[in-house]
Structures are given as structure tokens and as C-alpha cells.
Computed example of a mutant assay.
Amino acid sequence: MQRRAVAVFVALFLAIAGVAGALTATADSPEIALENPEVDVSQGDSIPVDDESYVVTDISESENDEGQMIISGTLERNFTAEASETWTNGSTVSVGDRDWRVEIAGENATEFTLVEVLDRQAILEADDTAENETVTLDDGEYVAVTDDSGERTLVPVDEYFPAPEERSVATGETLEYNGQTVTVDEVTADGAVLVWETTETETIEVAQQSTVTLGDTDYIAHFPDASTLRMSTDIEAYEAQVAEIDRFDQYNSGLSRVLILSVLSSIMLAGMAFIPSRY
């Protein structure tokens, strides 16, 4: 009698396990699907935003720390920005292949002067008749020059070295600096401000199901495969799909626990049925 009762319960638990297993095996897991996305692109495509565009420079698949394969992408936008640099009064700057000293005269100056900084050492070394170092005496600095007869003469440095070149540059004028054309935007007693346009690159890393802001618009990003990026502004619909997936996972997890508990209960009851009775 005891074994017949156990057999009934074992059959019941196995039936429950069978139903749970069948439901688990046949249930279709919902997936994220962006309907009518505003953006549907592949690597190399452009995404227009206002008067500019972002280029999809990369879509790739990689393995994360948990060993899962994940898809991510990169967007890039080139844009024009204004750069500036201040040349302080008395500083030395390199323009062309020479060094210049910045000189600004007066509190209300509207221009500055570039005064060439002579490479005295190079000039001395290039002159076979001059010594490579100047001579300093009580009354000034000199260059020692030896003529063809061997006579050594001291020449004042102001007479020996050529007069430095000077260039005046006013507000609004341009000059070539570091391979680009710069404009003198402002001149004050402290320095001159130079401005120019430069091209900069904005890079946006896009992760699976991340929020991406392009211009003033927020998008939800989705990679259906390792070569396609889709983005939609309907973030609420995306969140609803995520909630549906969470509910499915909870439902499926519950069925799995029922399956396991039913099988274990059947095994335990079957084992108890063969325990000898003391009566």
C-alpha cells in the first residue's frame, strides 16, 4: 500500500516535471527589435545630424571578461573649432625657420613687432676669421677677428653682427605660423592673441543597448548583428521590450526550479519507498 501511494506521488511529480520541461523547451525568448529606427547603418556609412554627419568607423564583436561575445561600435565626427595662442610681450616665438622676439610698445598698441633673434653662435662658427666666442671687456662686448696677416682685431658686436630683421603685424593681419594661416585677433600691452581654425574629431563609443546623444537627440542603440547598427528615439518602446524580457527570464527561471524540484522529489520518494518497515 505504501509503495502504491509513493508511486502515485512519483508519477504526479514526474508529470509536473514533464509539463515544466515542455514549457521551458518550447517557450520563445523575446528579443530586442527596434521598429522603424531612425538610423539603420553599417560600417562606413554616415549619419546626418543637422548640418554635420557622424561616420560609423567601426562595428566589431569581442569577448568580455565573462567570456560573452558583445558587439560595439564607434562613431566619429569631424568639426571646425577655433584655436588661439597668446604671444606675451618679450617672449620668443618661432616663425618660419627663425626665432623672433615679440615687442609691444605702449599701453594702447594695436600692433606688435617681431624682432629677429640672431643665432650669434652659428654666425661666428661660419666665419673662419672670427673666434667662436665673444670677448667681454669693461667697455662692452667684442668679436675677435684675425685678418690674413695674422693681426687680431676686436670688433664691437653691434658692428660685427648684422642688424636683426623686424616685422610689424597689426590687429586683423595674418601670418604663417606652424604651417597654418593665423590672424591677429587682439593686441594689448601684455601680449598678442592669435586665432585660427582647426579640425577636431569627436569620437563616440556605442555599446549594445546604450543611450547615444547626437546633436540634441537621444537614441537607443541596438546591434542586431556584427555589421549593423540601428538607433531609435522611441526609448519607451525599448524599455518595454526590456521589461518583457525580464518577465520571461523570471518565468523561465521559475519553471526550471519547478522541474528540478519535481525530479528531486520523485527520486527522494522512490528511494523512501524501498526503506524496510519495522512493522
Rank of each mutant, 00 (worst) to 15 (best):
A273G: 15
D45M: 06
G96F: 07
L255W: 03
T199H: 02
E159M: 04
G90A: 05
Q180A: 15
E159I: 09
D51V: 06
A109K: 04
S72P: 02
D50N: 15
E176P: 00
A27G: 13
G150D: 08
D51C: 00
V10W: 02
V155S: 07
T174A: 03
E107M: 09
T183Q: 12
S94M: 03
D28V: 11
V193W: 00
I59C: 11
E82F: 00
I235L: 03
T183W: 02
L194T: 06
E151R: 08
R101E: 12
P156D: 05
M231V: 12
A270M: 09
D119K: 10
G21W: 12
V169Q: 13
Q180F: 01
I204C: 02
I235D: 00
T88W: 01
L229I: 09
Y238W: 11
N64P: 14
A22S: 12
L75S: 08
N108T: 13
V155H: 10
I47Q: 08
N89I: 09
L214W: 03
A130L: 09
D40Q: 09
V187K: 07
M272W: 14
Q209P: 00
S227V: 12
S253F: 11
D190P: 10
Q180M: 10
Y251L: 10
V145I: 15
P164T: 08
V242E: 11
L137C: 04
